[in-house]
Design a protein around this nucleic acid. Structure first.
Lengths: 336, 336
DNA sequence: CAGCCCCGAGAAACCGGTTTCTGAGGATGC
DNA sequence: GCATCCTCAGAAACCGGTTTCTCGGGGCTG
């Protein structure tokens, strides 16, 4: 079922069929009607592949994520596909499973078949990324700075989020705070770690990861270190920590406060409901598309967008155990 | 940067470049070496679009899901992309946002650019699907029966899952059970409803939906109806129900048992940990790919695969309030 | 040494569209 | 009435690859 079949049955040339179906008005209405009728009767749909080749644009963009099973990313991807879909673009999704090597391979592979690329929180090193990102292929990178104009970027200011968390915990009188750190390949993790070490040089850093299981494994170490509050790389890790603390008989927030990052939907339903830093996931996806689309059009360098997170206080944080009213009051003054 | 550039610089024909890069051994090693070197130096990567057109296969498959924000689907999609990726296929993802109309449009659109299609729990009516699914395009449909050979299918036997839940609750002495029903467009919901009505004609059915918010809204009605156990369409709905019950001061599982479907990762971390029916999500994705790939090869009709769910008992279910030991004993005998 | 076969590489056709180029025919102007 | 312009549709080139076809040359056989 090709354009040639339609042309033959309608008794016109392929060029005419193409013109009619692309809405050009330079065709005799009689012929146009015949073409439309024949093409409908035959159930003809032009091949996007062939159109892509002829037009030099596939109307497809790629997005590479570290882990679709982490609820953060599907929300970003969803917003992105919906926004792109409205502009007539399809999205191919690739999951690197947190593996930097695989990520590089996927980027190269996907690059061959798309008009543009979104790298979501890439795990590969900057040097590798620079080597692999095709010069001339519009690209936006989220949550990791690669020098413009190689890629545009849409960032969430993780450091600010961490500062808000620290202020919140300090106001509650916490003095000994642990951080269950994310993957070392994560740039967001580096940002959070940087902000933590600047604001709170004495914090206990425990290498953990990005999954609940890893949070479960690390939570005990946080308790043993004498921390009264534990900040988790993300909500998934926080869930694991909550489960472990419950298993250990440590009351949250009575004996230990717990904070996450992301604000995935389930954060509001665990018990105690999780205090967390809400990252604007849908906006991240939407803005990424907008920035990419702008590059697609004018082939300019693309903007750098910065999004703000917000602290959502729920039930998993409370006054530090043993904190005096004085200390809390001081904390509150300092925070205000 | 096209194959012609490489050919010119290497002093050979385009055909030879193509042969070398596709690993044909009929080329003089000297020429082959030169071609490889030039193509590497120029950073040449063949256009997948052009290859797709020439070979008549894009090595891309589409997957349409109702809602990527529901953790069930990303897990399926992830397993599918990984499995497909191993066979050199890319996956384009489309999210219909639970809207049957949008779903139909997406199917048509995606169909134009892929070699095969996976419809995940489609929400559109059978008649519409039949109209829109391109005859001859390899297609597999999950969790909804469309007559073969129009599409192959990979199903999870939701009815069996529901039976297991009912047996479990009955053994615990529950006699008055409510079901927070999912979207009426969901075939899984219909299966569960059917099994429920066959096994337990007196059950209270409360139209709800697929999201936590909707579970939150409906849970009160379940309590008011005097149910001692509530079965939720999925875990998200169950989370909402748990939150509402807590807000109402109804103890779970003391006064009310709650069961979900899916076993999303967070189900193990809410409190009380959710008893739920585990659906093999990753296997669903993997098997979907395998069935699709088989069709891609031999253009046969494609198999029908049926997967089994398993009941995972955690903390959100317990003995019915007011259940006598006798009743429980009877239930246990009946269930055994 | 003639005839045959096989090997390997370039020429050309092809995939299914879009777009430029070309030319026939009608309308207009003088 | 003839030259000119304009409109519209078909022919052909093109997108960037792959694959078939073709043909020259070397090695083998008789």
């Amino acid at each position: 079922m090709t354009i040639a079949d339609v042309a033959r049955k309608a008794g016109v040339s392929r060029a005419t069929v193409s013109r009619v179906l692309n809405g050009q008005d330079t065709v005799d209405p009689v012929l146009a009607g015949r073409v439309r009728q024949v093409s409908r009767r035959l159930g003809y749909h032009p091949s996007a592949i062939a159109q892509g080749l002829a037009r030099g644009a596939s109307h497809t963009v790629g997005v590479v994520v570290p882990d679709l099973a982490n609820p953060f990313f599907p929300e970003v991807v969803k917003a992105l596909t919906v926004a792109a879909g409205k502009d007539g673009f399809s999205v191919v999704v690739a999951d690197s499973d947190e593996d930097p090597e695989a990520e590089l391979r996927l980027i190269q592979d996907v690059s061959r078949r798309v008009d543009g690329l979104v790298l979501c929180s890439p795990r590969a090193g900057i040097a590798d990324l620079r080597r692999v990102v095709r010069k001339g292929l519009p690209t936006v990178c989220t949550n990791r700075m690669v020098d413009p104009p190689l890629t545009a970027s849409v960032m969430i200011d993780s450091g600010r989020g961490m500062q808000a968390v620290i202020r919140h915990l300090t106001e509650l009188g916490h003095r000994r705070i642990a951080y269950l750190a994310g993957p070392s390949s994560s740039s967001s993790n580096a940002d959070r770690l940087g902000a933590l070490e600047r604001s709170l040089p004495g914090a206990v850093v425990i290498p953990t990861g990005s999954k609940s299981q890893e949070g479960y494994a690390s939570a005990a170490a946080a308790a043993e270190a004498g921390a009264t509050a534990v900040i988790c790389f993300n909500d998934l890790v926080a869930f694991g920590a909550l489960a472990r603390l419950r298993a250990l008989g440590v009351a949250v927030p009575g004996e230990m406060s717990v904070v996450g990052f992301d604000d995935i939907p389930a954060a509001d339903f665990v018990h105690p409901a999780l205090t967390t830093v809400r990252l604007p996931k849908a906006e991240l996806g939407r803005r990424s598309w907008e920035v990419l689309r702008d590059q697609l059009g004018d082939h300019g360098a693309g903007a750098s967008v910065r999004l703000e997170p917000t602290l959502v206080v729920r039930e998993s944080t409370g006054k530090a155990i043993g904190a005096t009213e004085d200390a809390v009051a001081v904390g509150e003054r300092a925070g205000g």
